[in-house]
Design a protein around this nucleic acid. Structure first.
Length: 797
DNA sequence: CATTCGCGGGG
DNA sequence: GTGTACGCGAATG
């Protein structure tokens, strides 16, 4: 039995015969000759399923948008007993969900063997969730390709991808007749379409949360050079004016801050109240206003996900709800969208893991591999998780605490992905039977064999990404200005893929994840770090510290050439590129604050020879440190970074103390700005569920009383007003309930400041008590000088 | 003291 | 509709 023609997804004119085509048609030009065709050149802007088919948006050179439709029947496969398959076919036909297409022969993922399957066509792509619920009852049948993202499936079938350069032929009713991509997603040099942007901002959106109540004081609309401020006063007028602006500028992208959580639902509520439809979309859809998102547990913390408000025919991009936009900007977003076949607007709201998954699925489809049905949750944000995994599986040495000089740091570049490629680590290659007898194929420590004959899917996906990122980095080096920025954003996007691909391998819900593969990576990484350490020591270097893929080493009089040579030696031994991160003028590995004799792995600060600093794990790096404290600590470290060595570090202690005094005085004198004192912490539960009255719990409770919901996973922002006050409500005030003239607890903030200074000065023997004594002295001097000079000249810091 | 709570990557 | 972890540091009770 061979693969038959006719198993391709069904498209185009055939469907019109079956009556699917007309349902797609939203135009009223039925009198025009349907056979009249037009050619559109442009970029594939967006694609999504709608009413029995796919809607495609193409933006042409002039920035005009074209809506095209095509009927589309995704194909999926099943295998099982003949009788079960027959029953399945009857059931799906009876429900009008899908129809059998006939037998096919495809490649099974785990074994790589060709197997016989039965192909089905899903009548309506939008019915995919219903299909999955229905086929879940057929427990004796195995399904493949049934839950693939529809845009990806369609894009793969049509050999196009998001933001591809395309040429399309359409009939007079907007139905797609032909579509061809003019470039490849792997093209390095490509241009974005000319997209018009509009930014919406409102007073209140900086809170980014709370149940949108449908109140909005001012809406600010920016498009081109125009800035329009709309007052809510009369919601009807506001919505009408916004609609007018949308029509006039006809933006492709709507940028918001907290648009998903707040602005868009608020506008929709206003529009509903005014009885005027809000024209955010270019397509005719019925919008539901969902106000409640959901909190969920993922990788050790509670996260909150606001409802999504995508636009149809436009991209709504909520800058505050897009990790990838924040990290990689538009160039990175589009780069990942092209490679993963996840449309840009969706890409903006998903994680790097989804992009990896898309790339793997795309490759599987390209190679005719059956994709196993992955029941359960799709992946979520997992930024915090990789850290955890690295700590758990990677090898970590205890640092030699204290202040050091002449230390070099060498890092394996993209260690995990590089190893996955080098050792062919993929779910279907780890533990393979065919290489069980091959001792060289075994994972260290664990002893599991890894296939040496067949390259794994994960490996095949990763290899070109590593190469592509290297290419972007090389071009970035040679480029300048805007082009340089383009390459940088794209390579950053790919870096995120590389950083998360390993975590994704061990993620229980990853489609191509497997814990043994994950363990193989960490086992090899431990071996490589040990080998690197041995090479270092063999060359007379002392290893002060090492974490997973980085080593801090020292040898008197070692030159850069010697370090470069050392890196080559290590690379030759372990087979993974390693490079000099830099030579530190000084670096301090900090001990534990709880037990000062105990080293901790990830608390250090250092200054490179080129003046740059690198700090980990200290106040500055934490998101819950108030800006004033972070700024002060940053300035202290900047001063210390001027020191050429450890002695210079110690010599700058007085200057650091001056900074401490300067900020403390500012606090005492009531000069600090409240926004610099704001503490941001996320809450992990509902306000009433807290067992301890922590400051953030108290802040959340105050907000709740005012009717502002703080969902688990959202952040509260507050200023400490009277820490430890018997009246717990007086201790803290959330930003939303703060008057402009509100007071703050200067002593408490000085405490935090002292703690930040202590972190930096501990290597010189200072502790909090000593720093407080110093500040007491300063304060006394200050009062004295005040009494002496009536003009009250301020002491210079 | 025990318990609760929040944070964190790399370049 | 929604599952799993670790170590540190700080704060509460």
């Amino acid at each position: 039995m061979g693969a038959r023609p006719g198993l391709r997804p069904h498209c185009g004119t055939r469907d019109a015969e079956r009556g699917i085509g007309p349902r797609l048609d939203s135009s009223s030009q039925s009198s025009i000759d349907n056979r009249q065709s037009t050619i559109v050149h442009g970029w594939l802007f967006d694609l999504y399923p709608m009413r029995g088919g796919m809607v495609l948006w193409i933006v042409d050179e002039a920035g005009e948008s074209h809506r095209l439709t095509e009927a589309f029947e995704p194909v999926f496969y099943a295998t099982g007993a003949r009788r079960d398959l027959a029953a399945l076919g009857r059931a799906l036909a009876a429900d009008g969900l899908a129809r059998p297409l006939g037998p096919a022969r495809r490649r099974e993922f785990w074994t790589g063997a060709m197997i016989d399957v039965l192909a089905f066509a899903l009548g309506d792509p939008e019915a995919q969730p219903r299909l999955l619920r229905r086929i879940a009852t057929f427990t004796t049948v195995t399904f493949f390709d049934c839950d693939l993202p529809l845009a990806l499936q369609y894009a793969h079938h049509r050999k196009v991808f998001p933001v591809a350069r395309v040429t399309a032929t359409r009939d007079a009713r907007g139905r797609l007749l032909d579509l061809a991509a003019a470039d490849s997603p792997w093209e390095i040099e490509y241009e974005h379409p000319p997209l018009r942007r509009m930014a919406l901002a409102c007073q209140g959106d900086e809170l980014g949360r709370g149940v949108p109540t449908g109140t909005l004081r001012v809406l600010e609309v920016r498009a081109g050079d125009e800035v329009v401020r709309l007052d809510e006063g009369d919601p009807g007028a506001l919505i009408a004016e916004l609609n007018r602006l949308l029509r006039r500028h006809d933006p492709h992208i709507l940028f918001t801050q907290y648009g998903d959580a707040y602005l868009v639902p608020t506008l929709l509520l206003l529009a509903r109240r005014a009885g005027i439809p809000l024209e955010l979309d270019r397509d005719a859809i019925r919008r539901r206003i969902r106000l409640r998102g959901h909190s969920y547990f993922s990788y050790g913390r509670i996260l909150y996900q606001a409802p999504f408000y995508p636009c149809f025919g436009r991209w709504h991009i909520d800058a505050k709800n897009s990790f990838l936009l924040r990290e990689t900007r538009m160039q990175g977003l589009v780069e990942l969208s092209r490679l993963s076949k996840i449309p840009v607007q969706k890409m903006a709201r998903t994680s790097p893991g989804s992009a990896i998954s898309g790339m793997q699925l795309d490759r599987a489809l390209d190679e005719g591999i059956l994709v196993p049905w992955k029941k359960g949750e799709p992946e979520r944000w997992k930024s915090a998780w990789d850290l955890f995994v690295a700590d758990k599986g990677g090898l970590v040495y205890q640092p030699l605490t204290g202040l050091h000089q002449g230390v070099a740091e060498i890092d394996f570049a993209s260690m995990y992905p590089a190893m996955m490629v080098r050792h062919n680590i993929s779910p279907e290659t780890v533990g393979c039977a065919c290489c069980a007898g091959d001792a060289a194929a075994r994972v260290p420590e664990i002893g599991i064999p890894v296939c040496r004959r067949r390259e794994g899917l994960v490996t095949r996906t990763l290899r070109p990404i590593l190469a592509r990122r290297a290419e972007y980095k090389a071009r970035r080096k040679a480029a300048a200005g805007e082009r340089r920025e383009v390459y940088d954003q794209r390579q950053t996007a790919l870096k995120w893929i590389l950083v998360t691909c390993f975590g994704y391998l061990g993620y229980r819900n990853a489609r191509f994840g497997r814990i043994e593969a994950h363990e193989a990576v960490t086992a090899w990484s431990r071996e490589k770090l040990i080998q690197a350490r041995e090479v270092c020591e063999a060359h007379g270097f002392r290893v002060l510290h090492a974490i997973v893929d980085s080593l801090w080493i020292r040898k008197d009089g070692a030159t850069e050439e010697e370090l470069a040579m050392l890196c080559r030696r290590i690379q030759a031994k372990v087979g993974i590129p390693i490079a000099l991160e830099g030579v530190y003028k000084w670096i301090a590995f900090l001990p534990s604050r709880v037990s000062p004799r105990v080293p901790v792995v990830n608390r250090y600060l250092g200054a490179f020879a080129n003046g740059e600093t690198k700090v980990r794990g200290i106040d500055l790096r934490r998101s819950d440190t108030p800006p004033l404290v972070a700024e002060a600590q940053g300035r202290m470290i900047a001063l210390l970074a001027e020191a050429p060595d450890a002695a210079g570090y110690r010599a700058r202690v007085p200057a650091v103390l001056d900074v401490l005094a300067e900020y403390a005085l500012r606090l005492w004198e009531g000069q600090a700005r409240l926004e610099d004192l704001t503490i941001t912490k996320s809450v992990s539960k509902k306000p009433e569920e807290y067992r301890h009255d922590t400051l953030s719990a108290l802040a959340a409770k105050q907000l709740a009383r005012k009717g502002i919901a703080v969902h688990p996973g959202e952040a509260v922002r507050y200023v400490i007003q009277r820490d430890g006050a018997a009246d717990k409500a007086a201790r803290v005030r959330p930003l939303e309930l703060l008057g402009d003239d509100a007071a703050y607890d200067a002593a408490k903030y000085v405490d935090l400041l002292v703690r930040a200074a202590e972190t930096v000065l501990a290597p010189c023997g200072y502790d909090a008590a000593k720093l407080h004594r110093y500040l007491d002295l300063i304060r006394r001097q200050e009062t004295e000088s005040r009494t002496l000079s009536s003009s009250g000249v301020r002491r210079e810091g």
